[in-house]
Design a protein around this nucleic acid. Structure first.
Lengths: 295, 295
DNA sequence: TCGTGTCTATGCTGAAATCGCAACAAAAAC
DNA sequence: GTTTTTGTTGCGATTTCAGCATAGACACGA
C-alpha cells in the first residue's frame, strides 16, 4: 500500500536518459539498484512501464502515458524538498514580525538592514500595530516574533527582555519648562498634555503616575500614534509624555526633549514568541540578530 | 539524498487529521511508526514541521508554508498511482488501434461493441487507414495494435492470423455476368473494372491475377476506398473486385456479389503488434477479445 | 561467423531501515 | 490526586535494499 517514490523517480530518470546505467550514474547508485527498483514498482503496479532489452530501453504505452505526470510530481517534490533544505541550511525564507510603531521606526530599521545584508533574499513581513495586537498576532500565529511591551501574562507567550527606555517630556522651546534639565511628574499639573490612545501601554504608565499625584488630564487632544503627538507638539498645540525613542534629540527644530524624573519611568521592550513553538530558520536568525544588537 | 515520501505523507495526514493517533489509524500503521517517520524527515530536513506536545499537534511556520505543496504532491501521486493500479486490475484505460477501412466497417464494430460492454469507460482511438500505414502506425508506436494484411516482413512486427476472406466480383443485376453462380478471373476480360488505389493490398492481389492472364485494365475509374467503388458499381458505372466483407449479400438492392474462382483468392487479415512491446492492459483485453471473436 | 563491447538481469550476502510491542513521560481532565 | 489521552523511546525481529560478481542478451565490426 505504500507508494514507492524511489521506483517512480528511477522510472523517470531512466526514461529521460534512455538507459539504466546512465540513470544510475545520475542518481549515484549502481545500475543493479535501479533494476530492482523498477522491478519492484512494476510488480506492485501489475504492469510494465519500460520495455527493455539489453540494447534499448523504451516506454510502454502505459509508461508513455504516465511519464509526464511522474516527471511533474518528481520535479515538484525535488524542488519543494530542496527549498526546505535550503531554508534550514541558510536560514532562507520569509517570516512575519509584529512590532509596536515606535520600535518599528527606532531600532528596527538598523536591525532589518543588517538582516538583509546577512540574509539577502529573505523577506520580512512587518505588522506595525499596538502592543496588544502584537501580542495577539504572536498568540494566533500571524507573526512568529513580536516586539512589544510586557502585557498580561499568558501561558502560551514567552517573553525576552530586549531593552528599556525612559518616558520623557516633550515641549516646544517657548514652553515655560523648556529650559529645565529635568522635569518631575508633579510638574505635569501645568502641562496641557497631548495624550495617546488609552489602548497604548505608554498611556497606561502615564495614567498610573499622574493618578498617584491626583493630576487629572486637562488636555483635549488624544491621538493614536506617537508620531502624531510629536507633530502636534511641534505645532505648538501642547506638550506630551512619550518614550525617549520617539524623537532623537534635536531631530525636530523647536522641540525639546527633557528627562522626566521622580521617578524615572521606563518602558520595557520585550521580544515575544509563542512558547512551545519552533521558529523558522529565517525568523530564528532575526531573533538572534536582534538580541545581539540590543545586548 | 533520497526523498522520504512516506515521511511527507505522514506529515500531511497528521497535519490534516490533527494528531498522530488518528493519522496512524488512517494509514493503517501504528502511531509509533509515524513518530519515527516524522522524526526522520525532520532530522533530514534539519527543521521542525510539527510542534507537538502530548496534547496538541500544531504546524510550525515552516510546516504551514510547506503543507499546501506537500498536500498537492501527495494527492497527485496517490491519484496517479491509483489510476495505474486501476488500469492494471480492471484493464481500464485508452489505447489506439490502427485498422484498414474494410475491417473497420465489417467485423470491428461488433467487437468494439462487446469491448465497450465488458470495459465501460475505456476509449478506443481508431485510425482507419491503408494497410501500409497501419503497419507504420504500429511500428512507430502510434497504435498499439493494428489490423491489416500481411506485408513485407519486419523484425519488429509480430503478426497473428485473424481471418481470411475471398475476393468477390461485384456488379449490377443488369450486368451480363450477374446471373452466374461464380465467375472466373478470365471473365474479367470483359468486365469494365473499377479499381482501387494501387496503394491497397486488394489491388496488388488483383493485378497479379489479371497480369497472369494477360488482362490489362480497361477501366478508367480508380478510387481510394472500397466503399466508393461499391457506390460506383451501384450507380452502374462499372464492376469491381473487392473483398467479400465490403458488402453483405443483398445489403444494396441492385448490386450482386458473385464468387470469383479459378482460383479463389483470399485476403488474409492479420493482427499486428510490435515485438518486444508490452501491451497496455486495455489493449491486451481488446486483443484477446478480437482473437476469441474470430477464432 | 565469431568475437567483443555494451547493456540489463540475477544469485547471493551483508547492512540498514522499518516496524511493532511494551514501557515511559507529559499534560490535561475529572 | 488519579485517570486518561497522546506522543516518545528502548529493544528485538523482520523486511527491505544496495552492491558485488557474474550471467545473459544483443549489436557491431573484423
Amino acid at each position: 500500500m505504500k507508494i514507492d517514490f524511489d521506483g517512480i523517480q528511477a522510472f523517470v530518470v531512466i526514461a529521460e536518459l534512455g538507459g539504466f546505467s546512465k540513470a544510475a550514474e545520475h542518481l549515484h547508485v549502481t545500475q543493479t539498484a535501479l533494476t530492482r527498483r523498477v522491478q519492484k514498482l512494476e510488480s506492485y503496479l501489475g504492469l510494465r512501464l519500460l520495455d527493455r532489452t539489453t540494447r534499448y530501453v523504451e516506454l510502454t504505452a502505459v509508461g508513455r502515458e504516465f511519464l509526464p505526470q511522474a516527471k511533474a510530481i518528481v520535479g515538484e517534490m525535488t524542488l519543494a524538498v530542496g527549498r526546505l533544505k535550503d531554508m534550514s541550511k541558510h536560514a532562507r525564507g520569509s517570516f512575519t514580525l509584529a512590532c509596536v510603531p515606535t520600535m518599528a521606526s527606532h531600532v528596527l530599521p538598523a536591525v532589518i538592514r543588517r538582516y538583509m545584508q546577512s540574509h539577502p533574499g529573505n523577506r520580512v513581513r512587518l505588522i506595525d500595530t499596538s502592543a496588544f495586537e502584537v501580542r495577539d498576532a504572536v498568540l494566533h500565529g500571524q507573526a512568529e516574533i513580536g516586539i512589544g511591551i510586557p502585557t498580561e501574562r499568558h501561558p502560551e507567550i514567552l517573553e525576552t527582555p530586549l531593552l528599556e527606555e525612559p518616558l520623557m517630556f516633550f515641549c516646544r522651546k517657548e514652553h515655560p519648562l523648556s529650559d529645565r534639565t529635568s522635569v518631575t511628574w508633579s510638574d505635569m499639573r501645568e502641562a496641557e498634555l497631548i495624550v495617546v490612545s488609552s489602548m497604548t501601554a505608554t498611556r497606561v504608565f502615564m495614567d498610573y503616575q499622574l493618578a498617584k499625584r491626583g493630576i487629572s488630564l486637562s488636555g483635549a487632544y488624544e491621538v493614536q500614534h506617537h508620531a502624531t503627538a510629536i507633530s502636534l507638539v511641534a505645532a505648538g498645540v501642547g506638550t506630551a509624555i512619550l518614550p525617549a525613542s520617539t524623537l532623537e534629540e534635536g531631530a525636530r527644530p523647536g522641540v525639546c526633549r527633557i528627562p522626566l524624573v521622580s521617578p524615572v519611568v521606563k518602558r520595557k521592550i520585550t521580544l515575544l514568541r509563542r512558547k512551545n513553538s519552533t521558529l523558522s530558520p529565517a525568523a530564528n536568525a532575526f531573533f538572534e540578530l536582534l538580541r545581539a544588537h540590543t545586548a
